[in-house]
Measured scan of single mutants.
Amino acid sequence: QTQEFDNEEEARKAEKELRKENRRVTVTQENGRWRVTWD
């Protein structure tokens, strides 16, 4: 699953929550947008 964010702060917040659920999370930056991908 993927979700896009406008800034790193929001993306990192989402990453932190997903990691609490023991998910594999990848955060990438593309064209000024932050993308959080998880399984």
Rank of each mutant, 00 (worst) to 15 (best):
D39A: 10
R12G: 02
R19S: 10
L18I: 04
F5T: 01
V36N: 00
D6F: 07
R19C: 08
R12S: 03
V25L: 03
D6C: 09
W38M: 05
V25I: 06
N22E: 05
Q1L: 06
R35V: 15
T2V: 11
R35C: 04
E15C: 05
Q1F: 14
Q3Y: 15
R33T: 08
T2M: 15
F5K: 01
V27R: 02
A14R: 14
E17I: 12
R19L: 13
N22F: 13
V25F: 03
E4M: 13
N22G: 15
W34V: 01
Q1K: 11
E17Q: 13
E17S: 06
T2R: 08
N7A: 04
Q3M: 14
E21Q: 11
T26K: 05
A11L: 03
R33S: 05
E10V: 02
L18S: 03
T28V: 12
D6P: 07
Q29Y: 15
A14D: 01
T37R: 08
E21D: 13
R19M: 09
D6S: 10
R12A: 03
A11G: 01
Q3R: 13
E10P: 00
D6A: 08
R23N: 15
D6E: 12
D6N: 12
Q29E: 14
V27Y: 01
G32R: 03
R19A: 13
E15S: 06
T28G: 05
E17H: 10
V27I: 09
R19N: 11
A11W: 02
A11I: 01
N22Y: 15
W34I: 01
E21G: 08
N7H: 08
K16F: 13
E10F: 04
T26G: 04
N7K: 06
N31M: 09
Q3E: 12
E17M: 12
R33M: 12
V27W: 01
N31E: 10
N31A: 06
G32F: 03
T37N: 09
E8T: 01
G32V: 01
K20S: 08
N7Y: 07
F5Y: 13
E9Q: 08
E21T: 14
E9N: 08
D6V: 07
V27C: 04
N22S: 08
K13F: 12
N31R: 04
E21W: 09
A11Y: 02
N7R: 05
Q3W: 14
R19V: 11
E30L: 09
A14S: 06
R24G: 03
Q29I: 08
W38L: 05
E8I: 05
R12V: 05
Q29A: 07
A14Y: 10
T26Y: 13
N7E: 07
W38G: 02
E8Y: 09
T37E: 11
E9I: 12
F5E: 00
A11T: 01
W34Q: 00
A14H: 13
E21M: 14
K13P: 00
T26C: 12
N22P: 04
E10T: 05
K13A: 10
V36F: 01
L18G: 04
R19D: 05
E8H: 04
E15N: 01
G32E: 05
Q1S: 11
K16H: 14
E9A: 08
K20H: 11
V36L: 06
D39E: 15
N22W: 13
R12F: 07
E10Y: 03
K13Y: 04
K16A: 15
R33D: 02
D39M: 13
Q29G: 08
L18F: 10
Q3L: 14
D39K: 04
F5W: 05
E15A: 15
E4L: 15
F5I: 01
V25W: 01
W38K: 02
N31D: 12
E9H: 13
V27Q: 00
E17R: 11
R23C: 05
V27A: 02
R33V: 14
T26Q: 06
D6W: 08
E9S: 08
R35W: 12
T28K: 06
L18W: 11
K16Y: 14
V25C: 07
A11H: 00
E17N: 12
E8V: 03
A14G: 03
E8S: 03
K13W: 13
W34D: 01
V36P: 01
N7W: 04
K20D: 11
E8G: 02
E4V: 15
R33Y: 11
D6L: 07
A11V: 03
V25N: 00
Q3A: 14
L18D: 02
T2I: 14
E4G: 04
W38F: 06
E17P: 02
T37H: 04
T28M: 08
R33P: 01
E15Q: 11
E30V: 14
D39P: 04
N7M: 05
D39G: 11
N22D: 05
E4W: 15
V27L: 05
R24I: 14
D6G: 07
K13N: 13
W34P: 00
K20W: 07
D39F: 15
W38A: 05
R23P: 12
G32A: 02
T28I: 11
W34A: 00
T28F: 12
E4F: 15
N31L: 05
K16W: 08
E4Q: 08
R24Q: 13
D39N: 11
N22I: 05
G32Q: 02
R33F: 11
Q1N: 14
V36I: 04
T37Q: 12
R24L: 11
Q29F: 15
T26N: 10
E10L: 10
R35G: 02
